[in-house]
Design a protein around this nucleic acid. Sequence first.
RNA 1: GGCCCGUUCGUCUAGUUGGCCCAGGACGCCGCCCUCUCAAGGCGGAAAUCAGCGGUUCGAAUCCGCUACGGGCUACCA
Length: 471
Amino acid sequence: MAEQAGPVRVRYAPSPTGVTHIGGARTALFNYLFARHHQGAFLLRIEDTDRARLQPGSEAQIKEGLTWIGLHWDEPPIVQSEHLPRYRAAAEQLLSSGAAYRCFCTPERLEQMRAEQRARKEPERYDRRCAAIPPEESDRRALAGERFVIRQRMPAQGTTTLHDLIMGTVEFRNDTLDDHVLLKSDGYPTYHLAFAVDDHDSRISHVIRGDGWLPSAPKHLLLFQAFGWEPPAFAHLPLVHGPDHKPLAKRHGARNILEYRDAGYLPEAVVNFIAFLGWSPGTTQDLFTMPELIDAFTIERVQPSPAVANLERLDWLNGQFIRRLPDDDLARRLSPWLPQASPDQIRPLVPLVKERLQTLAQAPDLLAFFFGEPAPLPADAVKDRPAMRQRIEAAVRRLEEAPAWSEVELESRLRATADALQIKHGDFFMALRIALTGRRVTPPLIPSMVQLGRDRVLAILRQRLTELAAG
RNA sequence: GGCCCGUUCGUCUAGUUGGCCCAGGACGCCGCCCUCUCAAGGCGGAAAUCAGCGGUUCGAAUCCGCUACGGGCUACCA
């Protein structure tokens, strides 16, 4: 595969018609990793030439999503709607060279034409009725105010060959190519025109995009040729599928990438997760930081087959990354999830939950008993009230005498208490756990008691005794 | 319909210069250990006739052909 001369420059070019989902984020990430791996530039381009489908907050959402997963663009984003004269001039250039022509066909005629082609079971393509209009007549009608689009004139024969970095060599017969529209009658370019002009003007070296574009790649190659420009290298990424093996759509994972943030996922984990969708390093390492990804990423190792997003793996990855976070860092990230607690209050609790969290969102529930009242005693847990009371009373007596409130001290006193009661340590700990938190699943009991503090622990236990006596 | 892409455990994949692969790793699942619950961690296990068929070859997941299945594109959308 011939390497492009000059610096590596790539771009992620979303259209602001929605949000960035997993698939889009992956396209962006692969572009970013490729750029950084080659010390190149990563650009952002907003493809807003479809005014009908434009969505107001979309651009901001896209930028926020990219920023969240740590993809920073190196130059101010290019916004296509701001460059209309440039596209028009480019189209004019093609017009005068004969590589494109004005088409005056109405939408109605085109629809009728297609209906007839369908009926005859022919490929639905523009029939090139306007291709033969002499330039003078074309100019005259345009001047007279007749509405038109500009279409690219495809070669009648021969083949166009694409050397794709992922898909390999793909050959297309030119006579199967449609004379697609380059400039719409509203003066806006279509994707094809804007793509070629912008990628050329931005000196893009590699186009890494979804493989939905593969069928139009030959037209793009021809378009570069018509302009007399050196085309970029191409890499078409296979789609990301949902669990049902259908392309990712609203019905499953096609959620805004930011929803993963809101669900308590770490951007590190999300990045690691999407990096492995269709790519692998070829080693057994499965946890990568961004710098490691940049170092390991090569486009040749991207799979040509679509990947199914396996969200269970994301959960596992998230837990792994949480555990690798320094405690101070985890405390900081937990802070928004525990608005009732100050950073100083959160920090000492981090070691209690660090190994138990799969997402940050689980922290509030796990730590609830530290803030506010403990949950009511579960009904099934107090079936044997006398036993429960006995255990709590014994614990209170021992704890009141504790000279120090440390893990070592509490552990030895509690174990001694269990021995005195002649019950299994585990059973005794469980009784205390339920008394203290109202739950059977909590962070480890003794460290939790230490954090809760002597006064609070004794207060809760006495309160429970009162409840048990009353109820 | 036409053009194009794809097909290794449930999932992500290793494998790509044919033999070291009766196919390796990870998630998930199951079991055991550790253990105050839950996790985490450790150890082990089940799980892929490499889509099918036919070639080439001493030898194929790896090369070739056909078929099947899945998917994309086929707009004055990107």
